[in-house]
C-alpha cells in the first residue's frame, strides 16, 4: 500500500514495524484508535510515565536557562527529586560539549521518504563533536548490547548525518563526529555511550533503505501480526487481532524494552489535543 501523504518515519513507528507489522499498520498508517490497555497495572504505569514526562520537562527548563535553584521539585515528589539529584550529581554535563539544544527535532528527506527524530538534548561543537543525549527513566537498565542494537541508536545518528548540515556551518556532519548517550535517571553512573562511524552509517543506509522500501511496497492486508505472541500481551490491539484478552505486566515489558518513558510510542491518546481549542 502507498504510504499516506505526509507520512514520516520515526524510530517509534519503525520499532513498531520491526516488532509487529500489523501494529505498525493499525497505529501509524490507519491511525486506528483502540483504547484497550497496553499493560497493567495502568495507574502505576501512568504515574511512572507522568514522572518521566515531568523529568524531561525539568531538564528542558534547565537547559533553556531557568536557574537551578528555582527548579528543585517539591519534597513530596520523591522519585522526581531523586532523579533530579542524580542528574545534578552525575557530572554528565562535564563530559559533553557546552553548546546545547534541548528538545530538538530534526528531519530529512531520504529516498523519497521523510525521516524525523525528536532528540532530548543535542550537545555539539560544530565541525568536531555531536552528542545525542536521551534521558531514560525506566526502572531497568537494559544491557549494552540491547542498547547498541536498538533502532533508536541507529536511527538518531543516521538522521543527524542527513539533517545536521544547518548545525555544522553548512557542512555535512560526519558519522565519526557523532555519539549517542543514554543517561538513566535510576542508574546515573551507568551511562551508555555509543560511537557512530562511517561503517555503521553504511550499514544503516542499507538497513533503512530496505526497511522503508519493504514498508512502502507492502500491500494493505499484508502487514502481518507478529509470530511472537508474547508481544501481544503489551499491545492494545490484542483484541482486534484476536490475540488474547488481558494485558501483561508493564514491569515485565520494561525488562524487554527501552522502557515506557517514551511517550510517543506509549500513548495512543494524545493528552494535549484539546487544550487550546477553547479559543
Amino acid at each position: 500500500m502507498s504510504l499516506p501523504a505526509n507520512f514520516q518515519f520515526s524510530q517509534s513507528n519503525l520499532h513498531d514495524y520491526i516488532d509487529c507489522a500489523r501494529r505498525f499498520e493499525l497505529r501509524s498508517l490507519l491511525q486506528m484508535q483502540w483504547p484497550a490497555p497496553r499493560s497493567e497495572p495502568i495507574l502505576e504505569q501512568e504515574h511512572h510515565i507522568l514522572m518521566g514526562e515531568r523529568f524531561h520537562h525539568l531538564l528542558h527548563q534547565y537547559f533553556i536557562g531557568i536557574p537551578k535553584e528555582l527548579l528543585a521539585p517539591s519534597r513530596e515528589e520523591e522519585q522526581l527529586n531523586a532523579w533530579w539529584e542524580n542528574f545534578n550529581r552525575s557530572g554528565l554535563l562535564d563530559s559533553i560539549p557546552k553548546r546545547v539544544l534541548p528538545e530538538k527535532t530534526l528531519a530529512a528527506s531520504w529516498e523519497g521518504q521523510r525521516l524525523i527524530a525528536k532528540i532530548d538534548l543535542l550537545a555539539f561543537i560544530p565541525g568536531e563533536h555531536f552528542v545525542i543525549l536521551d534521558w531514560k527513566t525506566s526502572i531497568n537498565r537494559p544491557p549494552s548490547r540491547f542498547l547498541t542494537d536498538h533502532i533508536q541508536s541507529r536511527f538518531y545518528p543516521f538522521v543527524l548525518v542527513l539533517a545536521g548540515r544547518s548545525l555544522n556551518n553548512r557542512k555535512a556532519v560526519l558519522p565519526e563526529q557523532i555519539e549517542m548517550i543514554y543517561w538513566f535517571a535510576n542508574f546515573p553512573d551507568q551511562i551508555e555511550r555509543i560511537r557512530y562511524s562511517q561503517e555503521k552509517y553504511t550499514r544503516d543506509e542499507e538497513f533503512f533503505s530496505n526497511l522503508m522500501h519493504e514498508i512502502s511496497r507492502l500491500p494493505a492486508g499484508q502487514f502481518l501480526a507478529t509470530a511472537d505472541e508474547r508481544k501481544c500481551r503489551y499491545c492494545n490491539f490484542r483484541s482486534f487481532c484476536e490475540r488474547g484478552e488481558t494485558a501483561g505486566n508493564w514491569r515485565e515489558m520494561e525488562a524487554e524494552s527501552l522502557g515506557v518513558d517514551d511517550l510517543e510510542s506509549f500513548q495512543s491518546i494524545q493528552f494535549d489535543q484539546i487544550a487550546e481549542i477553547t479559543f
Binding site: 530534526l106 528531519a107 528527506s109 542527513l162 548540515r165 487550546e276 477553547t278 479559543f279
Partner: peptide, 22 residues
C-alpha cells in the same frame, strides 16, 4: 502543518506551527 512535512523540504530542524494560545 502539512507544509512542515513536505518531502521537498530541505533537511534540518522543523518549524512548529502554533496558535498564539498554544
Amino acid at each position: 502543518v502539512q507544509a512542515t512535512q513536505w518531502v521537498e523540504a530541505p533537511p534540518g530542524s522543523v518549524a512548529v506551527p502554533a496558535t498564539v494560545g498554544g
